[in-house]
Amino acid sequence: MCGRIAVTLPTDAMAQMFAALPANNLPKVPNFNVCPTTAVHVISTQNEQRHLSAMRWGFLPQWYASLSGGPLLINARAETIAQKPAFRDACRMRRCLVPVAGYYEWTKDAEGKRLPWYIQAGDGATLALAGVWQDWGPEHERVRSAAVVTTAANASLASVHHRMPVIIAQKDWGLWLGEEGKGAATLMQAATEDALQFHRVATTVNSNRASGADLVTPLAT
């Protein structure tokens, strides 16, 4: 599961990092509380050019009659993505990267209260999450949407959540984006045990209206 993310890298730096052409309608950064159904930064390759663009976080299968015409598909399971009708074409032809500073997961205490955790790269670098995308709707109302690919969590993260996003290393960006032939399926696996670090944060982030860098500050113990 990956249901909330933080994006802090400036747009220009993001475009330079991925050698991508930036669109003009990108979401404002930093944003420490990016929620499903809102726009996220996405890297895709089209016509041999990488693009940095905004996409709706919440994949829209072609058969949805409206934006809320079915379940909200913010994640796609790596184990079944190639077989699921909603994702199988996108998995073959429309893979993307979702650059993030980190993401949130939740555990529960004995009373059922949701306790948030912030998860980021061990070295604090930007993470490139594996994703898939597609266009939905008539041409004059076209919506470009995306989902983050997830897999079973590694042993260290399993204490927080049993799923984690697939993270694509820089050397594999071209392969995942379809620039280097076949073999992208081999990338859909959990990150190594030391790749990520995580810490508890305040329950402020439980609200999708919360904002600010304090959301990722480690909770005092």
Rank of each mutant, 00 (worst) to 15 (best):
Met1Gln: 10
Val100Thr: 04
Thr186Tyr: 00
Trp63Val: 10
Leu21Val: 11
Tyr104Gln: 00
Ala169Gln: 13
Val34Met: 10
Ala220Ile: 12
Ala101Asp: 14
Asn206Pro: 05
His199Asn: 03
Glu180Met: 11
Gln120Asn: 13
Phe59Thr: 00
Gly178Asn: 12
Thr221Met: 07
Glu139Leu: 12
Met1Arg: 04
Ala152Cys: 07
Ala184Val: 05
Ser53Lys: 08
Thr186Ser: 14
Leu26Met: 09
Leu219Gly: 06
Ala202His: 12
Glu139Lys: 13
Gly69Leu: 11
Ala19Tyr: 13
Ala121Tyr: 06
Gly137Met: 14
Asn154Trp: 04
Asp12Ala: 14
Ala90Ser: 15
Ile5Asp: 03
Met93Asn: 15
Val143Gly: 00
Ala146Cys: 15
Ala125Met: 07
Ile74Ala: 09
Asn33Pro: 05
Val34Lys: 09
Gly112Thr: 01
Ala121Gln: 09
Ala158Asn: 14
Glu179Leu: 03
Leu215Asp: 07
Pro99Ser: 11
Gly3Asp: 06
Gly131Arg: 00
Ala86Arg: 01
Lys28Tyr: 09
Arg163Ser: 04
Leu219Met: 09
Lys84Pro: 00
His199Glu: 06
Ala185His: 09
Ala213Arg: 07
Ala155Phe: 07
Thr204Ser: 05
Phe198Gln: 08
Pro165His: 10
Arg95Glu: 04
Ser207Ala: 09
Val132Asn: 01
Arg50Trp: 07
Gln16Asn: 06
Glu111Ile: 03
Val29Gly: 11
Pro36Lys: 05
Gly122Met: 10
Asn47Val: 04
Trp117Phe: 05
Asp172Gly: 00
Pro85Met: 01
Ala15Lys: 02
Ala54Phe: 08
Lys108Cys: 08
Ile168Val: 13
Thr126Met: 08
Thr150Asp: 05
Val201Ala: 05
Asp135Pro: 02
Ala185Asp: 14
Asp194Ile: 03
His51Cys: 10
Thr107Cys: 13
Pro27Ala: 12
Ile81Met: 15
Gly70Asn: 12
Glu79Lys: 11
Asp109Tyr: 02
Gly183Trp: 02
Leu21Lys: 14
Ala125Asn: 15
Asp135Trp: 14
Thr80Ala: 10
Val201Asn: 06
Gly178Met: 13
Asn208Phe: 05
Thr204Gly: 02
Asn33Arg: 02
Thr126Ser: 14
Cys2Pro: 06
Met17Asn: 09
Thr204Ile: 00
Arg94Cys: 12
Ala152Ile: 05
Ala19Glu: 15
Pro61Phe: 02
Thr126Pro: 13
Gly58Pro: 09
Thr11His: 12
Thr38His: 09
Gly124Lys: 13
Gly70Tyr: 08
Leu97Lys: 04
Lys108Asn: 13
Asp135Thr: 09
Val132Leu: 15
Leu215His: 02
Pro99Leu: 11
Trp106Ala: 02
Ala147Met: 12
Glu180Pro: 00
Thr151Lys: 03
Ser156Lys: 14
Asn208Ile: 03
His199Thr: 04
Gly178Phe: 10
Glu105Asn: 01
Trp176Val: 02
Trp117Lys: 01
Ser66Trp: 14
Ala185Leu: 06
Thr80Arg: 04
Ala15Ser: 15
Pro116Cys: 03
Gln170Pro: 11
Asn47Glu: 15
Pro36Arg: 09
Asp89Ser: 14
Pro30Gly: 11
Val34Gln: 10
Glu105Lys: 01
Trp57Ser: 07
Ala82Trp: 08
Trp57Glu: 05
Thr221Ala: 08
Asp214Tyr: 05
Met14Gly: 02
Ala76Ile: 06
Leu9Asp: 01
Asn75Ser: 10
Arg4Pro: 11
Gly212Ala: 08
Gly183Leu: 08
Ala54Ser: 15
